[in-house]
Design a protein around this nucleic acid. Sequence first.
DNA 1: CGTAGTCTTGATGTGGGTCAAGTTGCGTGG
DNA 2: CCACGCAACTTGACCCACATCAAGACTACG
Lengths: 244, 244
Amino acid sequence: MQSFALPNARFSHIRCGACPIRERAVCAYCDGDEIAKLDAMKAYRDVEAGRDIIAAGEDCAQVGSIVKGVVKLTKSLPDGRTQMVGLLFPGDFVGHPTRAAAEFDATAATDVTLCLFKRGPFEALLRATPHLEQRLLEMTLTELDAAREWLLLLGRKTARERIASFLLMLARRAAGVGRERDVVGAVECDLPLSRGEMAAYLGLTIETVSRHMTRLRADGVIDFDNARAVRIPDAGTLAVEAGD
Amino acid sequence: MQSFALPNARFSHIRCGACPIRERAVCAYCDGDEIAKLDAMKAYRDVEAGRDIIAAGEDCAQVGSIVKGVVKLTKSLPDGRTQMVGLLFPGDFVGHPTRAAAEFDATAATDVTLCLFKRGPFEALLRATPHLEQRLLEMTLTELDAAREWLLLLGRKTARERIASFLLMLARRAAGVGRERDVVGAVECDLPLSRGEMAAYLGLTIETVSRHMTRLRADGVIDFDNARAVRIPDAGTLAVEAGD
DNA sequence: CGTAGTCTTGATGTGGGTCAAGTTGCGTGG
DNA sequence: CCACGCAACTTGACCCACATCAAGACTACG
């Protein structure tokens, strides 16, 4: 468990104009003046895979956007059972802007670059900048919809359907599909998560994930030759396996 | 499946000043002028238990606050498996303010009174009124946290723990406990949901819910003599059963 | 007092968990 | 370049919590 001020954190610098997430992040609707204010406040930070970003219960002094990499949010029961409750990609926002104490752990699933703001000043700017608040509301509503989709998955889908749904989500993301039309044909993608992390995401065990990955391969639904990538010959077939 | 314009919908009238949810709803932070605008736009509507409020996929022309009663949000797979993905109480907001198409069904779990606004004008007012947008963001973040807690429940808790967690949530609500200190001692509360709805909420079957309710009673954790109420002799014991 | 909906209870089945070996991949050092 | 060690993954055997199937029992309402 480590916080932002890591000895191994490396800094980098990006102009907001050249930022890869400029169009998608919380700053998406900001105009030149507003961006200038954010630019003055921001600090980049690199976190390597496996490191904690925020620990549950602790005050988080900083909030911000994911510039690069994948962040997982997890919650645990006192006896150690752990469930992933969020998976954040570039452009997504990390940390409660209004609430000091985090409700869950945030951990870098891959090497991550963050664009961070001190919580207090960011909150003040948020209050004063409707563009920021609008975008954050929109992003939060999207997250809420995703969480509800996930509730359906955990509550009612079989292990095979869960895995197919997860892979489909990655395929859509890899294919850069928006929310209008669906993925078709073949897609290849890297898995940002280990088998164990997939299990934590899907409410299963490592063994069940491994078994069903093998079985989906045997059935020709997917293909892979190392555990960190998949080839999907036909996204339609995978969608059928996903159950909805 | 029916929408807001029900033949059996009954209208009522409440001054915003006398509104029971004035302090908690989306309008909580609004000043006199802002409330006046909302007052001019609003329309109350009563929906009786079991009636649909919004059907998934359909455009919802209206959004608004729950004044009285409980609303459930559900999602279904094509083969009929159904999972509840949200449970909304007085003060909570129904309907996506920015997105036209609903992602799930909203149904009245009990008799419900809604305070409704037409989506378009409400969205315009939202853009122009930071107090509204702030409050809506705060409420959405709270919902997101609740959904994540629920993911842990569906992903990792046993049937007994799920039921205990649900009852504890109701107990906290009945005792009017905020988010600071916890419920203690005895609490009685009505169940707004049938066994079947509890099952849909908890990712279980009716039979499993019934059996564990019986067993929790046999173990002295709860007591009841009809299926729509419970008495909790000691909230602490129930909290232990809930697992966290 | 009959019928329908909801809830309870019992008997049986099964998907996924648990426990226990392997196996594979990869970085490290000889 | 190969041997070693470790972590992640795979595979198998067995088990159990919850689902499924099937009666009953309670309540409400005509």
